[in-house]
């Protein structure tokens, strides 16, 4: 599975939106995370607030940087895609998608959240993201 989290959905002081999409690819069963295969982040800064279309695009770009991402189900917390049904998000992403429902899935999404938030804080402090799919400055 691949856990996804998006940080920075709210406007910054300068009115821009600095979003970080983090993906964590992991091997799990219902309750255990056995290993993390790969991680990737996608950073983007836009003058407009995000909508479903932009979020899906950004998640797709973050997934592109992962090894064999297309083979796994993408999992996110309910609410990440404005409460849209799973089938719709799945159709837009072009890969199987579901909202987290097991302990292990929640844990991987939580890892993605920590990664996204950490990068968000770093970017805010002026750090440059070296190994990521860097988006356009908007």
């Amino acid at each position: 599975m691949v856990g996804v989290d998006i940080s920075g959905r709210h406007a910054e002081e300068d009115g821009r939106y600095n979003r970080i999409t983090a993906c964590v690819s992991a091997e799990v069963d219902g309750f255990n995370v056995f290993s993390v295969r790969d991680v990737n982040v996608f950073v983007v800064s836009t003058p407009e607030p995000p909508n479903l279309r932009t979020l899906v695009e950004e998640v797709s770009k973050a997934l592109n940087g992962l090894d064999k991402a297309e083979e796994f189900t993408v999992v996110a917390e309910p609410g990440e895609f404005f409460g849209e049904p799973e089938w719709r998000v799945s159709a837009l992403l072009g890969v199987p998608f579901k909202y987290a429902e097991t302990v292990a899935e929640r844990e991987v999404v939580q890892m993605a959240h920590k990664l996204a938030y950490g990068v968000y804080k770093g970017v805010k402090m002026g750090l440059k993201v070296a190994r990521s799919s860097q988006g356009s400055p908007g």
Partner: peptide, 14 residues
């Protein structure tokens, strides 16, 4: 079950 076990913070093997 997953929701409740996660909510109460179970991290032991299952």
């Amino acid at each position: 079950c997953h929701r409740v076990l996660d909510e109460i913070g179970v991290r032991s093997p299952v």
